[in-house]
């Protein structure tokens, strides 16, 4: 582009060869005074090329790098925050499952203990009941034997008493066999 300006300038330069760029006042409107154009174009080309070089080589890469670095830092921080959040969520989940299994195990242990205790108390009660039942049976047996003994004693006493009564009444002792038979018959009737 600089070349094209240069050519244009060259063309105009011939037309206004003797013109000067200073404001020699009064001749025309300054923005339209052609004799100042070459100087302005040269200045503009120098200034703008310098500006373009500074901007494209140094200024924009520098500012762009700062902005990129910031964007990267923000993205990195966001990713890090997301990672930490995921981590804490995973930890929370692990804690919850741990808690659930612990609770389940506690319940299992409780149930087991309860069952065991119930079983042992059942067994104890059974043993106690058995022993009580045995004692009861023994007692009943002893009562029965005592009663049987007592009954057999009653028979002997009754026979003795009968033979004594008969002796008192008749003056003569009855035959033991007869008395015993009579007592048995009597006991059978009453029993």
């Amino acid at each position: 582009m600089a070349e094209s300006h240069g050519e244009a300038k060259g063309g105009e330069a011939k037309g206004t060869a003797s013109a000067h760029t200073e404001a020699d006042g009064g001749h025309g409107f300054p923005p339209f005074s052609k004799e100042t154009f070459p100087s302005q174009i040269v200045s503009l080309v120098i200034a703008f090329v310098a500006l373009y070089v500074i901007v494209s080589r140094v200024a924009l890469p520098k500012v762009g790098a700062v902005i990129d670095a910031r964007q990267k830092a923000i993205d990195g921080d966001l990713a890090e925050a997301q990672r930490l959040k995921d981590e804490s969520e995973a930890a929370m989940k692990a804690y919850e499952t741990e808690l659930a299994t612990a609770r389940a195990r506690a319940q299992a242990i409780g149930a087991e203990t309860r069952d065991k205790l119930a079983a042992s108390s059942d067994a104890e009660r059974k043993a106690l009941e058995d022993s009580l039942a045995a004692k009861l049976a023994a007692a009943e047996k002893s009562i029965a034997t005592t009663r049987a003994t007592a009954m057999s004693n009653v028979r002997g006493i009754a026979a003795d008493a009968a033979s004594a009564i008969v002796q008192q009444l008749t003056g003569k002792a009855p035959a033991a066999k007869t008395v015993e038979a009579a007592v048995d018959a009597s006991l059978k009737g009453t029993a």
Binding site: G10, A13, A17, S18, A19, T36, P38, S39, V42, S43
Partner: peptide, 11 residues
């Protein structure tokens, strides 16, 4: 440039 004076101006 040629006969044209190139000046450093206030501009």
């Amino acid at each position: 440039i040629g006969n044209q004076e190139i000046a450093f101006t206030n501009s």
